[in-house]
């Protein structure tokens, strides 16, 4: 069966102010796939993730992004979310005064409304919350606290995955969800992500450690350096990066980086 094409990024260039950050990114993600996006600090991974989610402080200067047949860059951030795009933030934001459960319910119902579905009533919502809470083994006391306020680094990351578990996105981008998690938490979060995996959704895992990829096994690994995907491969590429670092890729002549990588990825 033909897998649905979820995301196509073509020759994406973007800058923040005067600084060029993305310099021609190509990426294709199909339903059912797990992609790992790796690369050294400052290479543009979060920028790519934020642009996909609709952050307006970046300016796209060239290229296009197609998400499930739509021009993603024309959609408002909340429309993207309602269309099933989810970003687990590298730095989840604190929202004082807004109850975590209340927030999640507002989010879920906004998405349901977009799909033309009824609001989930309080009883069904709580049942869902309980079930998904177990998936990420999150402390239930975090539910009644303000969103992320005073949460530890690890609790914030877990809360992101918990939200993802409730919202059931089609394309999830996890930006460094592993950083700040100890090894047990990492295992639990990874198990949660794996259990949410379905033939009709996909995950892009952004990380600069291969550690997480022991638990979430990627179908594809891409290396982003200086705003370009310089190499793509399978899970073995991650192991190679673990052994050799990024230096050997950074030293490649400029000309080769311009070669679009997407050909290798279309399945």
């Amino acid at each position: 069966m033909e897998k649905e094409r979820l995301l196509t990024v073509r020759n994406l260039h973007a800058k923040a102010g005067d600084i060029d950050i993305l310099q021609g990114v190509d990426l294709t993600v199909n339903a059912g796939e797990v992609h790992a996006l790796m690369g050294p600090n400052g290479s543009g991974k979060s920028t790519l993730a934020q642009i996909l989610a609709g952050r307006d402080q970046y300016e796209v200067t060239e290229g296009e992004v197609i998400y499930r047949g739509k021009n993603l860059l024309e959609l408002a951030p909340e429309e993207r979310a309602c269309e099933g795009l989810f970003l687990a933030f590298q730095y989840p934001v604190e929202i004082p005064g807004v109850n975590n459960t209340y927030f999640l319910k507002a989010a879920l119902n906004a998405i349901r409304k977009h799909r033309g579905e009824e609001d989930l009533d309080a009883v069904d919502f709580l049942a869902l919350v309980k079930e998904r809470l177990q998936l990420v083994e999150m402390d239930p006391s975090l539910l009644s606290r303000p969103v992320n306020e005073g949460f530890s680094g690890g609790e914030k990351k877990r809360n992101e995955i918990f939200q993802m578990a409730v919202l059931e996105p089609i394309l999830a981008i996890l930006d460094e969800t592993d950083s700040g998690l100890d090894i047990d938490a990492l295992r639990i979060v990874a198990a949660g992500v794996n259990r949410l995996k379905r033939p009709d959704n996909a995950t892009v895992v952004v990380t600069h450690y291969q550690r997480l990829l022991n638990y979430i096994v990627p179908d594809f690994v891409h290396v982003l350096i200086d705003g370009r995907i310089v190499k793509s491969g399978d899970k073995n590429l991650a192991l190679e990066l673990e052994n050799r670092g990024y230096d050997w890729l950074e030293e490649q002549p400029k000309g080769r980086r311009k070669t679009p990588q997407r050909g290798a990825l279309v399945s």
């Binding site: 952050r55 979310a81 989810f86 934001v93 005064g97 927030f103 507002a106 989010a107 977009h114």
Partner: peptide, 30 residues
């Protein structure tokens, strides 16, 4: 003194909540 920042609004939008709803949610919480 606190501030409703772009970051908070964007976070809410990314979860499907419009800016207006986000602001009124934060304000009501406050």
């Amino acid at each position: 003194t606190s501030k409703i920042g772009e970051d908070q609004i964007f976070y809410c939008k990314q979860r499907g909540i419009s800016a207006e709803d986000a602001v009124s949610m934060i304000v009501n919480g406050f």
